[in-house]
Design a protein around this nucleic acid. Structure first.
Length: 350
DNA sequence: AAATCGGGGAA
DNA sequence: TTCCCAGATTT
């Protein structure tokens, strides 16, 4: 096996080439222009498994409404989820609030300034603690995300499965040895930026890579074989019948209590697919009198591990019932956090 | 170690 | 279609 960067001199050259490339090519991001600890924290949480371009508008809106940790600690879950609506992984913002409350009670409302303490906060794991500590506080620790694992696999021609914790740990130790003595935050961000712009999963742009001379994959044409990772599993299918229940100008909604999409609101749902007679029977069992019923279009919702096949009915009723909330369409849209899966049925309301 | 937890951009 | 994204937490 070929070996690269075995000497300190090589590491220094690698660091210098990467940092120079980063200074010239880094993208503008709102948290980079004003990198306060709270803004770095918020950005890192939003960026978990989520692309930069997707996060930016959410970041701007969230920070405008929730500008401090103290504001975060005292905002209702529902208002926080509304700001997070459509971003996914909703527990992230609930965990952030939990951490904010802890910081208000125990640290004068200020974020912890080191990796060890950051790791005690809800929603902050190995990666995020390293990213925040290095970017916001210049602590000499690494921040190894999917980009960095991909870069390490290629740089060192390593066929380890990057989804296995033991392999991920080994790669992390390799990054640790590459860390410069200063500009730690920039170095970590430069690695991730390289992964996002040059060392991409498919068709990496090696010809423009600032560190191609250090890369075993580039020398041996292994770019498209590395990194090795498991294929994603098959989605399980679930059939659902979505009920758009209308009383006068109001529609029934209920709050989800499952772990999936917990805290978001949805239209009443029946498991499985059902015909009109079965739906009417259920609605009347719930204590409502059906005036009319019509099928609405079927929809499909994809999650990483589940597929919902949703059929729907629009039902007019002549009375409300207990156990669900009836609201006007504009109020539902403006005030209630609704999962993307149901946004397609919102058009039935307008 | 494996499963859970969203949604979307890109090929 | 499939892949995978500045991952964390639970089982």
């Amino acid at each position: 096996m070929e070996q690269i960067m075995k000497s300190q001199t090589d590491s220094n050259k690698f660091q210098k080439a990467l940092l120079e490339w980063y200074q010239k090519n880094k993208r503008e991001m709102p948290w980079r222009s004003k990198p306060t600890p709270y803004r770095i924290w918020l950005s890192e949480i939003m960026l978990q498994q989520t692309r930069v371009d997707t996060v930016i508008p959410y970041f701007e809106k969230f920070f405008k409404h929730i500008p401090t940790i103290i504001d975060l600690a005292r905002t209702s879950d529902q208002d926080l989820l509304k700001l997070w609506e459509g971003l996914g992984y909703y527990r992230r913002v609930i965990n952030m609030k939990k951490a904010a409350i802890h910081l208000v009670e125990n640290n004068n409302g200020k974020l912890y300034d080191n990796k060890k303490d950051l790791l005690t906060l809800a929603g902050i794991g190995e990666y995020s603690a390293g990213a925040i500590a290095s970017i916001a506080f210049q602590e000499k620790v690494c921040a190894v995300d999917g980009n960095v694992l991909r870069i390490m696999a290629r740089l060192y021609g390593d066929y380890g499965n990057i989804l296995q914790p033991t392999v991920s740990k080994r790669f992390t130790d390799m990054v640790e040895k590459l860390l410069p003595d200063s500009s730690i935050g920039d170095f970590n961000q430069a690695l991730m930026e390289l992964g996002a712009l040059i060392c991409t999963p498919k068709s990496p742009d090696c010809i423009h890579c600032p560190v191609m001379n250090f890369c075993i994959a580039e020398k041996s044409m292994l770019q498209n074989e590395l990194p090795v990772r498991d294929k994603q599993g098959v989605r399980r299918k679930e059939d659902k019948t979505v009920l758009i229940i209308q009383f006068k100008n109001r529609f029934a909604i209920t709050k989800r209590e499952n772990r999936l999409l917990e805290g978001l609101w949805e239209f009443p749902v029946m498991d499985g697919h059902h015909d009109k007679d079965e739906v009417i029977e259920t609605i009347e069992k719930w204590g409502m009198k059906v005036l009319s019923i019509a099928a609405v279009k079927k929809e499909k919702a994809l999650f990483s591990h589940i597929e919902w096949d949703m059929a729907g009915f629009h039902i007019m009723v002549n009375n409300k019932c207990d156990g669900m909330t009836f609201e006007a369409a504009d109020k539902i849209v403006d005030e209630y956090p609704i999962a993307s899966a149901y946004q397609k049925y919102i058009s039935e309301l307008l």
